[in-house]
């Protein structure tokens, strides 16, 4: 097999807001519903064997993109080829060779055991009967659920259910795995465990495309990352490459107690801006939270204290951290990932 695992060009998905009533349809009234673009021209090129991350805040278009690549949604415009196959015309052929985790542990049958769940989905994935038992055993071992295979899913923890969802996606022995926010809602141990499974899958030659809004997850797991915002790719590179786009070497986060007088925040931010590059400022719990990029925190921090004092404010907390993907996102979009 050659060629990229995923090749998307100018992918667009528009949705209509609201519904047309039956009466409107019968009267043949013009469709006046507002349309909005969830995905606005995304280009992606994912090589085989890599873990490729799509990073962005909620509502950025990550899930819609995944659903189009998973053949659940037809694009409004643009083209996408998955494993060399067209997502609209050759959807079934793609589904034979792809596993996807687009939902959480609720998407299992809780009144069936893990093994019974997998038996059912193995048949839906057209796993040959002679191979079913071995595939199920292998999938359960991969996610370390083999010792609980015959328990009802209702007795599983959230983390175990999520691992079982991953096992289900492995049943077709897929060349490509799509994982949409696979660790959302998991405790840290379960999330780490799942990430370990994903890394192990890459070691076995699988291609993984995952979406996340956890920057640490993207940083640790991904060979390359596309940062998306408002339905568009705003940057695409390796994690290290993305971080190099930030000219600053250090990031200073300040929590400033200020009297909330009209214009006082602006005056203070202007003062700080003369000493560093103010990337983000927002009021949180009565304090002003400010993120500043600077070549030297050692020089900046005393100057920031002076600036605060001059503005009648006090700095309650200072944090100096290395550049992260969060800062890259902030720098590119002017917004924090979790906003």
């Amino acid at each position: 097999m050659s060629g990229p695992a995923i090749e998307a060009v100018g992918l667009v998905k528009e949705f209509e807001k609201g519904r047309r009533t039956l009466l409107q349809r019968l009267r043949r009234e013009p469709d006046r519903r507002e349309r909005f673009r969830a995905v606005d021209g995304i280009d992606l090129h994912v090589e085989r064997g890599e873990i490729f991350g799509v990073l962005g805040p909620n509502g950025a278009g990550k899930t819609t993109t995944m659903r189009m690549l998973a053949t659940l949604l037809e694009p409004t415009a643009g083209t996408a080829r998955v494993l060399g196959l067209d997502v609209v015309r050759e959807a079934r052929d793609i589904r034979r060779r792809m596993g996807a985790v687009l939902s959480d542990g609720r998407s299992l049958y809780w009144k069936l055991t893990a093994r019974e769940n997998l038996e059912y989905f193995a048949a839906l994935y057209h796993v040959p009967p002679g191979e079913t038992r071995a595939r199920i055993t292998e999938a359960l071992e991969t996610v370390r659920l083999d010792d609980r295979a015959d328990d009802y899913v209702e007795r599983y923890s959230a983390g175990m259910r999520q691992r079982l969802v991953l096992a289900r996606a492995l049943l077709p022995d897929p060349e490509l795995l799509l994982l949409d926010e696979p660790t959302v809602g998991l405790d840290p141990q379960s999330a780490r465990d799942l990430r370990d499974r994903v890394v192990a899958l890459r070691a076995r030659g699988r291609t993984v495309l995952l979406t996340t809004h956890y920057m640490e997850e993207a940083d640790q797991l991904c060979d390359r990352i596309a940062i998306v915002d408002h339905g568009r790719v705003v940057a695409l590179d390796t994690p290290a490459g993305l971080k190099r786009t930030i000219t600053a070497t250090e990031v200073v986060r300040l929590e400033i107690g200020t009297p909330q007088v009209d214009g006082s925040d602006k005056a203070l931010l202007d003062r700080l801006g003369r000493r560093g590059d103010v990337k983000h400022a927002a009021r949180e719990n009565g304090s002003l939270a400010v993120t500043i990029h600077t070549p030297s925190a050692r020089d900046f921090v005393p100057a920031a204290f002076d600036a605060a004092r001059e503005a009648g404010a006090s700095i309650n907390h200072v944090e100096v951290v290395p550049v992260t993907l969060e800062d890259v996102f902030l720098s590119l979009t002017g917004r924090a990932l979790r906003e």
Partner: peptide, 14 residues
């Protein structure tokens, strides 16, 4: 409602 329809439609089964 249970969330099990979508994973079934992600398989090659018609």
């Amino acid at each position: 409602d249970a969330g099990t329809l979508e994973p079934a439609w992600l398989t090659p089964t018609r």
